[in-house]
Amino acid sequence: MSATLVPETGSASATMRRNFWRGVWRVMRRKPSRMAGVVIIVGFAFMGLFGSLFYPDPLPDNPAAIIQPPSWEHWFGTDPQGRDVLALVVTGSRYVLLTATVTAIITVVVGTSIGLFSGFRRGRWDTVLMRLTDMKLTIPGLPLLLVLATVWKFGSPLQMGLVLGLLGWGGVARAVRSQTLSLRERGFIEAARGLGLSTTHIIGKELLPSMAPYIAMNMLIAVTGAVYSQVGLFFLGVLPYESDNWGVMLNLAVFQAGAMITPTALGYLLAPLLAILLLTLGIVLVVDAMDEIFNPRLREE
């Protein structure tokens, strides 16, 4: 009997996966803008992973081409060291995107875990965890980062992502707890508890799938928040310029190349700004499809 049930179970699971991905494909095709968002995000991921293969690291200086205006050879011009600005955007994306990814993972994992456990268990655990979350939310992030920057160089994107992630989970924890409090009173959760299923099973198999679109959206939003945070810190000159990234480019474009008053250096300023705006646009377009992707009823409409 058991030998015949296993293939059937595996076949049903495979069928569900195929139906899910077909539904995702239909949702993405419904609006061309969503496909454009996927292309943008995949393009940035490719740039961050393989961009260094196309350009040497570090990029060589060229004294004969200092602060050149945009041209066919240099689409966004050159920087004060004569390096191609577009190449700087590509090579600098690795630090920015890796930091944003690490930040998003830590923010969502920590915030979701605390919010789910607190909202489901209630009682003393809920009180303790929410007081810790409230304390976390009251800590001003920027002043703390300024203090940490005096003793920690943030030369590694993993270090930067770790700090930003540990500073950013409070809002996710609060929001997930609210969602959990609403879901735990639903009939399917009551039925699971009535059957004597473990807390781990209920959270992992019942609550998490229902909250998947909300968690996925928070992860994408955390990526944009991490990009803005780190770029802002480098632009303000708070962090040392130990690695090329978009924030360093913006700082040097304004305060060294004089991009605000020198037309030939304007491309040095616009290139990282356009990269940030394009990445944000791609994430916004994908977030637009999240609810339909994870809601079977909306996928079928």
Rank of each mutant, 00 (worst) to 15 (best):
W21F: 04
G282R: 00
K31T: 05
V85P: 05
I139W: 07
F120K: 04
L277V: 14
A253I: 02
F234T: 05
P69F: 01
A45R: 14
D61S: 15
R26A: 14
S229Y: 03
P58D: 01
V38A: 07
L132M: 07
I67L: 12
A257F: 08
R94M: 10
A265V: 01
T127Q: 15
V223W: 03
E73I: 11
I283T: 08
P56E: 00
L97I: 12
Y268T: 12
R26M: 14
E190W: 00
I105M: 07
T262F: 11
V102S: 05
D57T: 15
R22W: 15
M290L: 05
A226T: 05
L269W: 01
D61Y: 09
S33P: 13
V39I: 04
T112K: 00
L266I: 09
Q159K: 07
L266H: 11
F117M: 06
L59Q: 11
Y95G: 03
I293Y: 06
V172S: 13
L273E: 03
G168K: 01
R83F: 08
P69S: 04
A275V: 02
D244F: 03
G115D: 05
L274T: 06
L164H: 04
V287M: 11
A14H: 03
T262D: 10
T200R: 12
G82K: 00
L5K: 00
I261K: 07
R94A: 15
F44L: 07
R122F: 06
N218L: 10
V90D: 11
M28R: 02
I221C: 08
E206F: 04
L162V: 10
G43I: 00
M16T: 13
S93Q: 15
I106H: 10
K153H: 14
W152Y: 04
T224Y: 10
E206I: 01
G115E: 00
S11R: 09
T91P: 06
G123K: 14
W21V: 04
R186V: 10
Q230R: 06
T15P: 09
K153V: 15
G237I: 02
R193G: 11
L181S: 10
V238F: 13
G247H: 01
N295P: 12
Q230T: 14
A289M: 01
S71A: 10
A87T: 09
D291H: 06
V6D: 08
G115V: 01
L233R: 09
G92T: 08
L86K: 08
L59R: 04
L279V: 07
L266R: 12
S198E: 09
I283F: 02
L98V: 12
V27P: 12
P7I: 01
L49P: 10
G51T: 07
D57Q: 11
V6R: 09
M135A: 15
L220C: 06
Q230L: 09
Q159Y: 05
T224G: 07
K136L: 07
N245W: 04
R83K: 13
W246C: 15
A226R: 01
L278C: 13
G10M: 12
V39K: 06
I276L: 01
R121E: 12
E8W: 00
V248M: 06
L274M: 08
I293D: 02
K153I: 05
